[in-house]
Amino acid sequence: HNLTITQGKLFFHYNPKLCLSEIHKMEEVSGTKGRQERNDIALKTNGDQASCENELLKFSYIRTSFDKILLRWEPYWPPDFRDLLGFMLFYKEAPYQNVTEFDGQDACGSNSWTVVDIDPPLRSNDPKSQNHPGWLMRGLKPWTQYAIFVKTLVTFSDERRTYGAKSDIIYVQTDATNPSVPLDPISVSNSSSQIILKWKPPSDPNGNITHYLVFWERQAEDSELFELDYCLKGLKLPSRTWSPPFESEDSQKHNQSEYEDSAGECCSCPKTDSQILKELEESSFRKTFEDYLHNVVFVPRKTSSGTGAEDPRPSRKRRSLGDVGNVTVAVPTVAAFPNTSSTSVPTSPEEHRPFEKVVNKESLVISGLRHFTGYRIELQACNQDTPEERCSVAAYVSARTMPEAKADDIVGPVTHEIFENNVVHLMWQEPKEPNGLIVLYEVSYRRYGDEELHLCVSRKHFALERGCRLRGLSPGNYSVRIRATSLAGNGSWTEPTYFYVTDYLDVPSNIA
C-alpha cells in the first residue's frame, strides 16, 4: 500500500525493539523526510534493546553428524571492536523451508527459537588472519532439518551509529543413524509349514526405512522333555500350542467401542483428552525405555581390526524358502538304536541362519518350516543398504507352526516275539517326523474274553527296548493296539495285532 503524509511529521519514542533503520525507511515511504526535528525521533529510546544489523554474515563451514552440527561463519568486528559482546545463534526444527525470524513471537518477546549466546573469538592483530567464530550444536535429532541463523550482539553506541551483522536463515539436516526397533511384532501360524509375521514401523526411523531383515531359527525343545518319565503317576503330560491366527481386521481397528449394538453396526467412541494424553505418555515412556535398553543392555560386537582377528559373527547367506525346513542338525536320541526319531534339535552355532529381506511392506510369510516346531524370529529395521547396512537392534518374537495331521501315527506293522515265561516283546517304529517329539506310547492289549488293559511306555523305555515287553501273560489269544502321544496330543491307534500265548508248562520236552 502507498502511504503519503502531505502535512505533519513523524514522532517515535520509547520503541526499544524498533531499529532506527526501520524508522528511516518509514520517513522515505511516507514522504516526511526532512520535516522531523532532532528530538522527534529519539536516538536513545528507539532500538536500544534490539540488534540492528546492516551487514550480512556468511557461514564459512558446515559439518553434520547424526546428532551434531558444527558451524563456522566469517569474522565480524565493528569499528570499535570492544562493542562486540558476542553472537546469538538461533535454531529450531523446520520440516519445511518457510521459516521466518519472527515465527511464534508474542507480545512478551518470546519466540519459538532456541538461542545460544556465543563469546567472540580472540581478536588477531592481523586483519587478514582473524579467527572464524563458530559453535557445535549438540543433542539434535537424527535425520531432522533445522533452520539456523546467527547475528551479532553489540553494545549501545553513544554516537548512535547503527552497526551489526546478521546471516540469512539456512537449512541444515542432520545425518541418518540406526533406527529404533520395529514396533509390535506379531507372529502367527496359518499352516503346519508357515508363519505369518506382521509389525509396525519404528517410532524413530532416523532416516528413510529402506528394508527390513527377518531372521528365523528353529528352537530346540526343553531338555526336561527328553529326561522326564511322563508315565509316572502324578506327572502331567506336557503340551505345546501353536500360535493362533490373526483376529479379523475389524476387531483390530483402534479407537473402536468394545460393545456392539445388537441391531447392527455401531460407531466408534472418540477417545477423551485424558485417554489420548495417557497414550502419549505411555508411548514416550516406551521410547525412553527402549533407548535405555539399547544403550545399557546391548553391547556392540567388536569388529575385526587390522591384526587379522576374525569377526566372530557368522556370515549372512541367503537361502531359498524351500530350504528352511531342514535348518537344524538332527541327532538321534540314543545312538545305539537307529530307529528312534531325530527330534532332539541342538543347533550348531556355526550354522548360517536363513533370512529374508523385506522391502516396502511390514509383513512376511515364512514358508518351508517344520510342522509343530518353535521358531525364534528376529526382526531388524534398516535405513541404508549400501555401502553397508545400517540397521536397528533386533526385536524378537516366537511362534510355533501348526501340527501336521497323521504325523504322530505309527507307520509300519507292530511285530512281536514270544519268549519263555510268557513274555512277549512288542516292537514298532517311532514316527519319523512327529509333531514336536514323542513323549510316550500307549499300549492297549486284551486277552479274548477279558477286559482291555493299558500300559504306558516312556520315551526312554522305548529307546532301550525298541518297544516294550509284556510279562506274566496268561495263555490265550491276544490283540494289541499302540498309539503315540506327542507334544500336540495323541496320534491314531494302530491296526490290531494278534498273537497267541501258550502255557509254557505244557511245552513238550526233548528229553527222552
Rank of each mutant, 00 (worst) to 15 (best):
E442A: 02
R483W: 00
P387F: 09
E362I: 13
S257L: 12
S341M: 08
N208W: 15
C231F: 01
H461E: 08
L440R: 05
H416F: 09
C267G: 07
C266Q: 14
V324S: 09
P434N: 07
A309T: 05
S474K: 06
E356S: 13
N383T: 04
S344R: 15
E265N: 09
E290I: 14
G374R: 03
V365L: 12
I438Y: 03
T210G: 11
S444C: 08
E451M: 13
D506G: 13
R447M: 05
S509L: 11
R286G: 04
V457P: 00
C269K: 03
H425T: 12
E404W: 08
S203C: 15
V327S: 07
L440S: 09
L369P: 00
G489M: 08
A336E: 04
R301E: 15
R301C: 04
G234R: 13
V296H: 06
A381S: 07
N435D: 01
P354L: 11
E433K: 11
D261P: 10
H416I: 08
V359R: 10
R370E: 09
F372W: 06
R353M: 08
T386R: 12
L293G: 02
V299I: 08
H425V: 14
R471P: 08
R400G: 07
E279A: 08
Y375M: 08
R376E: 02
P205H: 03
E378M: 08
K302Y: 14
G325S: 12
V329M: 07
S257T: 08
W216V: 09
Q275A: 12
S341P: 05
P205E: 11
H294K: 12
E356K: 13
R240E: 15
L437T: 01
D291A: 08
P434W: 01
A395E: 11
R218T: 10
D323S: 07
V365P: 14
D222A: 05
L321I: 03
V331W: 04
I209G: 11
N208P: 09
V214L: 07
G472T: 05
E282V: 11
P244F: 10
A335P: 12
T415Q: 04
H454D: 12
L470Y: 01
G325N: 10
E452D: 12
Y292L: 09
Q275W: 07
I482F: 03
V334Q: 06
N510R: 07
E389G: 13
K302C: 04
E417G: 09
R400A: 08
N295T: 05
E362L: 07
L277R: 14
G374M: 05
Y375E: 00
A488N: 08
V397G: 04
E465P: 01
N490A: 08
P346V: 11
S239G: 07
E247W: 08
E433T: 06
E433Y: 04
G325T: 13
N360P: 07
S223F: 01
Y259Q: 12
Q252P: 05
V439I: 09
W493L: 05
V324Q: 05
E258N: 13
Q219F: 14
K317C: 07
Y448C: 13
L426R: 00
Q256I: 09
P387T: 14
S509M: 10
G476D: 00
K271A: 12
L487F: 14
S320Y: 14
E378W: 07
Y212I: 13
K361F: 12
N208L: 08
G234Y: 06
G322V: 05
S257Q: 12
V327A: 11
S363I: 05
W216D: 01
R240M: 07
L232S: 09
A407C: 01
G325W: 15
P354I: 12
D261N: 10
E433L: 04
A399L: 11
D506Q: 14
F462K: 09
G368Q: 14
S492L: 15
H461M: 12
C267F: 14
I366M: 13
F337A: 04
E452F: 15
I366G: 00
C468Q: 02
S367G: 08
P270K: 11
L321A: 13
A484V: 03
L379E: 00
P338D: 04
N477D: 14
R400C: 04
P205R: 10
P205A: 11
Y504V: 11
V324R: 15
L225I: 05
E420A: 09
Y292R: 06
R471N: 12
Y498D: 11
E279P: 06
I482K: 01
L453N: 06
C269A: 06
C267E: 05
R353N: 13
I276H: 08
E227V: 08
R316F: 04
E351P: 09
S342M: 08
I482E: 00
L470T: 02
D311N: 14
R447F: 02
Q252D: 09
P245D: 03
S262M: 13
E249A: 09
E351M: 10
D291C: 10
V507N: 15
E221H: 02
P238Y: 08
F462T: 03
N422Q: 05
V480S: 02
E430P: 14
E465D: 04
I209L: 14
Y498H: 09
S304D: 13
S305P: 12
S486A: 03
H294M: 15
S274N: 08
D204A: 10
A407K: 07
I482Y: 01
A336G: 06
F246Y: 13
S479Q: 11
I482T: 02
A405R: 08
Q256R: 10
S262G: 10
E282K: 04
S344T: 13
P387K: 07
L455N: 03
R318P: 12
H461K: 11
K460V: 15
L455G: 06
S320W: 06
L237W: 13
E281S: 12
N490C: 09
S474F: 14
A309S: 14
A263H: 04
K253S: 06
F215D: 07
A220G: 15
A330D: 01
Q252F: 06
F499I: 09
Y500V: 11
G449S: 10
L473S: 01
H352I: 04
D385T: 01
W216F: 12
S348E: 12
S342I: 02
F298R: 08
C231T: 02
Y212K: 00
P403M: 04
L235M: 13
V334E: 02
N421W: 11
A407T: 11
K271S: 03
D250I: 11
D409Q: 09
E224Q: 07
L453C: 10
S203T: 14
E221N: 05
Y292G: 03
W493S: 09
S251E: 14
F462G: 02
E389D: 03
P314F: 12
E217K: 13
E420Q: 02
E433F: 13
R316L: 09
E417Y: 03
V501E: 00
S315L: 11
Y478A: 00
P314L: 10
S268F: 04
N326I: 10
N339A: 10
R240A: 00
E227Q: 04
S479H: 14
T415P: 00
G325K: 15
Y448W: 06
I366E: 00
G368V: 08
P270S: 06
V345A: 12
E351K: 06
F246T: 09
D204S: 05
D503Q: 07
L455F: 05
F499K: 01
P270M: 14
F289S: 07
E465N: 10
S284G: 04
E265I: 03
S479Y: 09
F355Q: 03
P349D: 09
C266V: 08
Y230F: 08
L321W: 11
